[in-house]
Design a protein around this nucleic acid. Sequence first.
DNA 1: CTGTTAGCGCGTTCAC
DNA 2: GTGAACGCGCTAACAG
Lengths: 361, 361
Amino acid sequence: MVTIDDVSRKAGVSPATVSRVISNRGYVSAKARIKVFNAIEELGFVPNAMARGLKTQRSGSVALLVPEIINSFYTTLARGAEDVANANGLHLIIGNTDEKPEKEKVYVELMVASRVEGVIVASAGRSAKPLRLLVEREVPTVLVDRVVDGFNADIVRGDSYNGAIVLTNHLIELGHTEIALINGHPETSAAVDREAGYREALRRAGIKVDERRLSSGTWFIEDAEARVDRLLRQKVPVTAIFGANNFMAIGALRALRRNGLRVPEDVALVSFDDVEVAAEIDPFLTVMAQPAYSIGTLGMGLLLERITRKYLGPPREVVLTPRLTVRRSCGAFLKTQLPEEKVASAKAQSAGESNPRKSEQ
Amino acid sequence: MVTIDDVSRKAGVSPATVSRVISNRGYVSAKARIKVFNAIEELGFVPNAMARGLKTQRSGSVALLVPEIINSFYTTLARGAEDVANANGLHLIIGNTDEKPEKEKVYVELMVASRVEGVIVASAGRSAKPLRLLVEREVPTVLVDRVVDGFNADIVRGDSYNGAIVLTNHLIELGHTEIALINGHPETSAAVDREAGYREALRRAGIKVDERRLSSGTWFIEDAEARVDRLLRQKVPVTAIFGANNFMAIGALRALRRNGLRVPEDVALVSFDDVEVAAEIDPFLTVMAQPAYSIGTLGMGLLLERITRKYLGPPREVVLTPRLTVRRSCGAFLKTQLPEEKVASAKAQSAGESNPRKSEQ
DNA sequence: CTGTTAGCGCGTTCAC
DNA sequence: GTGAACGCGCTAACAG
């Protein structure tokens, strides 16, 4: 392993001079600088980041913890965070927690061991326990997407509550009253907020909430699929489904198709979070699209203020408004606004006023 | 910053004993162990990975460089690699090179500086230059997906050449002779191989290659879109398009739609690489699906053999067969096999034998 | 402008 | 079974 000493010998200067050259600080004569550069080149020297970090007490990296690296919402968020981090000379380490608080805890330990200078977390749960170490060690932390109970930190998130109201309302305006909510893990703030918004929209419309139409579990596709499947087999009357995120919608779609139901003709379907690539190929799902990339850049921005500008003020909250993107799955573009009554007991209620103008808010 | 010395003082033992406890080697009495554990707990001590790495000359991490973190092919590959790495006590650092050799070079330097124990690279180019440092420093390296000229290393990749033959052939069997290839960056091995396969399939079928139907550029969606757009405006007769990967296909789709052409009625479309989520929502694109997750796990497997089992044998090559997945975009399920002649000069050649059985190979 | 010195936090001998 | 001492590779302070 070639070290700074090897370089200094080869260049005929002291290690300190080499250090000054590579870290670009302090005065070094042009001649010495050249000699050092040449020696570095010849030896293929690359400074040891661990030694440097040990000395400087700075690792030069920040971390991002996401619950599901397969979900494009989080990869897009990650790109935003990475772009800002890199632009500020920091490297981003991404950890995938698989929606598991235990894995999250392990990653937090790894990050603390690595002495990352800050962490952005889209938490797997809403308990602060896996994040305890971050508080103890006073690691600058920013939450994104999901609130964590009793964890007092900056946060950047979409407006799940109002977004859910708008989205549910969209279905109501299309004439639906029997709307199922396929939620994710009840221990995540997004799930709680979206359910609250859903209930509020129904309340305002004077529609009674039928608890059989509410289900939660995990944020995995397979789980949503199983729950929708059960719902259908139990003959709970449903003319529309609200997936709490894109994965829930995909699970619902699978189950609906397996049961021979068409979307949107038989059942309307909407969800939170866009699926960009899929929408390119076929603009099908009506969604509340969240600005994932911006959530990443803004989150990293807040973090950097705490790290580099040593901002120590109170936690800040940035809430971004999601955008309703109306496509086919909600049935807004069907001739008949109200789905055919494939499901038992559809009340044949008249469609009420529909509002096809509201395609973008 | 709480250190091993703080712990040793609190526990009333020497730092060496604490070290033995946390790294779990050497003899420590049960009593001492308990005392140390308690002290660690009370102080919230987490060993400094940089200090440890500096001493042990092991960072405990491996790196993966991908050209496009937004592309699900690479995130799926990354998950495979991560799962295997974690199962072997190593942490995976993912770097996104954005298809840029310069960025790749920067990441390689970072990885060498971090003293990662091995690297998996899906290279942005086919030049070994950005990877030079890895050779110099003898960092165990495994290539995935893309070959690099003159870079002698283990590699795991899909069979682009034969895959392209099968895919092109599929179009030919459906009656197409005017097939455009929208390729990616010509300096990537996948692009070269897929073009070679495309040419070979046409040659075997006795179809002359019209160079106007061949285009390459970058692997970005926007670029493919612009090129297809140009192709259409230039009235080059085309009844089918072969996208060299999923992004190329999406770009082509955008351009086709903008020009009022329907897929597959007016133009058939196929590509390499599946887009899982999109296929869930709408099984539309006919693709040669590559086993991305397996490429990740196998690649990491080869790497670990070199790292932990010190395997020093000659480079190994693992070539995985992609799977033809026939969906709607190729027109195989249309009543009329041959697309309507929307484009000038379609030769109204008879469809020849089609082979709808060949849906999965 | 440059070299000498000390130490970041840990693991590892080698005595005891 | 345990502790003292050294050094991994680098940077920061202080002389010169």
